[in-house]
Design a protein around this nucleic acid. Structure first.
Lengths: 213, 213
DNA sequence: GTCTATAAATGGATAGAC
DNA sequence: GTCTATCCATTTATAGAC
């Protein structure tokens, strides 16, 4: 039975779209209600205020990103498999980009999110680290422990900030393009540690990258 | 003759401090005036509004960072020299961190800054690239052209976002610590490309890093 | 659950006196 | 250059009817 979508969910969906487009700071509760053609009062019936909406959106984001970040540990041992995985993480972040566009500001307004977000970044780092470890066990790459730690940290930072960096660099606003470049950059981080035939790996990367344009 | 500091400059200085502490979005013109113990009207005599203040602060920042980024091309050919240079860039960014904490938001409100900021990031990248090139000419490192390009981009992104990443990771809020870790991370990016005795370089890095704690 | 109406607070901005 | 006073717009938030 195709039931009508709950107002609460419509609010979240619309708020997310507006936040991503115009930036969270420039979107008021009245505007959200206006777009939805419901009254501000109605909106306040469902959410105490903008912070509550943001927190609910973060719940969604956290759940999805956790799923993604827990997935690949078991499988995905070749490098080729892993870049699809990176691609998915970027897409997830892109769907909630308003959040990343004003991290500090949002953390000030919603202090409970601070610790949770920090935990997510740690999870990114741990996942990266364990993927690197399994790639090493397979003999695909070679790196020392400090190298692996540093690389994992770098990966976490890259996943977190690449989209913003690329958007601000300003060549394009096309998110598929930005994401592809981000995956390429991530792969280039691993390149110097690849064991054996680096030329082959570089060729592979170059192939992948140029096929995207 | 020790002249009284101009009100215009006091406004800029106080605004900068408040922006960095509380975040630009949470500081109103009235608050700035309040802290300075001048009237809002007076503040508006000197600046049309908050945007004007932000833009003036960006002028200062741009000037200083350009100086820093133009300095090292000539000298600084050893890796050891370069990390002091990275340190300085981080300190400069840290002094104007409010800006980096809400890049997207500020770009929306002050569209003229968008292109200027993009140019600064390109400058970071070019500087990194030419430093890498000269290190290579000296035989200190070895890398292919695509590797150099990717590494330079990564450096620009690292300089731009590391402080935010580290602050959000949340172990510490001490900016000296954050900066030191950022320099270490930057150095670890170069490590795999160092020619000859990598062990010596790793030891050097480890030395530097542990002496900071 | 949803609406109307409106209160309460805040922030941006200006006019005119000193 | 600086102040006082004031106005306008926006936003958050609530009370009470339907």
């Amino acid at each position: 039975m195709a039931k009508k979508v709950k107002t609460r969910d419509r609010i979240l969906k619309t708020a997310l779209a507006l936040f991503n487009e115009e930036g969270e700071a420039r979107v008021s509760t009245v505007e959200i209600a206006g777009v939805l053609e419901i009254s501000p009062g109605n909106l306040y019936y469902h959410f105490k205020g903008k912070e509550a909406i943001i927190e609910a959106l973060f719940d969604d984001f956290e759940e999805e990103i956790r799923q993604v970040l827990s997935a690949p540990i078991k499988s995905a041992l070749s490098i080729e498999d892993n870049w699809i995985y990176i691609y998915i993480v970027f897409e997830e972040i892109n769907d909630f980009r308003f959040f990343y566009h004003n991290l500090a500001g949002i953390m000030e307004r919603c202090p409970e999110l601070r610790a949770r977000f920090a935990r997510l970044m740690r999870l990114k780092e741990e996942t990266a680290s364990s993927i690197l470890a399994s790639l090493e066990r397979e003999g695909v790459i070679t790196l020392s422990r400090p190298e692996r730690d540093a690389l994992a940290t770098r990966f976490a930072a890259h996943l977190t900030f690449w989209l913003q960096f690329a958007a601000l660099s300003g060549e394009t606003r096309d998110s598929r393009r930005l994401i592809n470049n981000g995956v390429y950059s991530a792969m280039m981080m691993i390149a110097p540690y690849v064991s054996g035939d680096r030329t082959a790996f570089a060729a592979l990367l170059s192939d992948y990258f140029s096929s995207q344009h």
